[in-house]
Computed example of a mutant assay.
Amino acid sequence: MSLDAFLMGFAFILIHLFANELIPSNRMNRLKWFSFSGGLAVSYVFVYVLPTLHKEQLLVKKYSNHLAMESELYFIGLVGVLIFYGIQKVVRKAQLKQQPHKARALFWLQILFFGFYNMLVAYTVISHNVLGIQAVFYGLAVGMHFIAVAHDLWREYEDIYDKVGRYVLALGIVAGWILGITVTFSPLTEAIIFAFISGAMILNVLKYELPPDDEAHFGTFTIGVVSYTTITMSLKFFFQW
């Protein structure tokens, strides 16, 4: 494990343990914070996740005799969207029907799946050997994403999240570290993992990190999008990410 990946993973763990301490308590500042964070996350999806997914698809098509189309990994990403959306939908349905015991039980399922999601994200960081300035910008976007997800889970069931949930999510990061250090998957398997978490991340970014119209601060959102995109595209041009 590189020092860059270690520091990034350690930051992710701290984010899950103390996410709600990082968010401003003042409502207006909080809305601006989430708008800026959402801008970074949306930019990250379009300038990093989707291009990388396309690159992985081309590599898989080149080196695998089993995949003949040009959209297999996009299908895996769609499966990631479907699974995570389905879990969240079931939890929300139980809440709307005022079935508190069932909703709390299903919330545990949601926590476990996000722990699994964190494990795959951490594994991807290790396996793709993200280093240097690229690690900084990758970590910034994913870290902001983790804070938004953690805050939303905390708002649903504060007691469960504070007592157990945040530790499950943090352990997911640790599990991904261990997996990345001890196990070497084939390029095809790694591509499938990346595609799955890409689909889940796209869903979570659009669901958790884009504030509703009445809570969004468009100026701050735009600053987040433009600044992250400009810097990332410049670094891609100069350093051939």
Rank of each mutant, 00 (worst) to 15 (best):
H66G: 14
H66E: 14
L67Q: 09
L67V: 13
A68R: 10
M69S: 14
E70Q: 11
E70D: 15
E70P: 05
S71C: 12
L73G: 06
L73Y: 07
L73I: 06
Y74N: 01
Y74G: 08
I76N: 07
G77D: 02
L78T: 09
L78Q: 01
V81A: 03
V81D: 06
L82C: 11
I83Y: 13
F84M: 10
Y85I: 00
G86N: 02
I87R: 07
I87S: 04
Q88M: 13
K89V: 07
K89M: 10
V90M: 08
V90A: 13
V91E: 14
R92M: 12
K93R: 15
A94V: 01
L96H: 11
L96P: 01
Q99M: 15
H101T: 11
H101K: 12
K102Y: 10
K102P: 03
A103I: 02
R104S: 15
R104F: 09
R104P: 05
R104E: 15
R104Q: 15
A105D: 13
L106N: 08
L106W: 15
F107L: 05
F107D: 09
F107T: 08
W108M: 11
W108Q: 10
W108S: 07
L109V: 09
G115M: 07
Y117N: 01
N118L: 08
M119E: 05
L120K: 04
V121C: 04
T124K: 03
T124F: 05
T124R: 10
V125R: 01
I126N: 09
S127K: 11
N129K: 12
N129S: 13
V130D: 09
I133D: 08
Q134I: 04
A135G: 09
V136P: 06
Y138E: 07
Y138C: 05
L140A: 14
A141P: 05
A141T: 05
G143Q: 02
G143E: 00
M144E: 04
F146V: 00
F146T: 00
I147K: 00
I147R: 08
A148M: 08
V149R: 00
A150K: 00
A150V: 00
H151N: 13
D152L: 13
D152K: 08
